[in-house]
């Protein structure tokens, strides 16, 4: 509490698909709460975690809350560094067109709307992981 100015690099690492277990939803809850702490936040989606960002989720038939719209709100919380592993996408036959269009308004660029998602090679994601101070895995 007394070191409120400390800014650390936080990475939320998501490797699990949504709905089959609660990890994706509860990870998102941590991200939303964490956004209030003004830390340097990134999200990485690798392995089955990439399925969390699939567009057109519709949960009516399973009676569970569709929380996918919450990802769209991340930009409003200044969470706009969302990294997706290209190999995980390729392995699953997915392209960026299969994912939700997540954006944020760049306040340093006259509030231009910009994409939050970057699809990166494993090499780049590795380098990113190495830079982090805290890695929260779900």
């Amino acid at each position: 509490m007394e070191d409120e100015e400390v800014i650390k690099k936080f990475l939320y690492l998501n490797r699990k698909a949504p709905y089959g277990s609660i990890y994706a939803l509860e990870s998102l809850e941590v991200v939303l709460i964490g956004a209030a702490f003004d830390q340097n936040v990134s999200l990485a989606f690798i392995d089955d975690g990439v399925y969390q960002l699939k567009k057109d989720q519709s949960t009516d038939g399973i009676g569970m809350k569709n929380f996918s719209s919450t990802y769209r709100a991340l930009g409003d919380y200044d969470v706009n560094k969302i990294y997706v592993d290209k190999d995980s996408m390729d392995e699953r036959g997915l392209t960026i067109d299969d994912l939700m269009n997540l954006t944020y308004e760049d306040e340093d660029d006259d509030y231009a709307e910009k994409p939050s998602i970057s699809i990166l090679t494993s090499e780049k994601i590795s380098a990113l992981m190495e830079e982090q101070d805290v890695i929260l895995s779900f």
Binding site: K8, F10, F37, Q39, V134, L136, S137
Partner: peptide
């Protein structure tokens, strides 16, 4: 949940 984020900030290492 803020207590988890605070633990990440205040601790030198976080182990999950």
């Amino acid at each position: 949940l803020g207590q988890l984020i605070e633990a990440g900030i205040q601790s030198e290492r976080l182990v999950v």
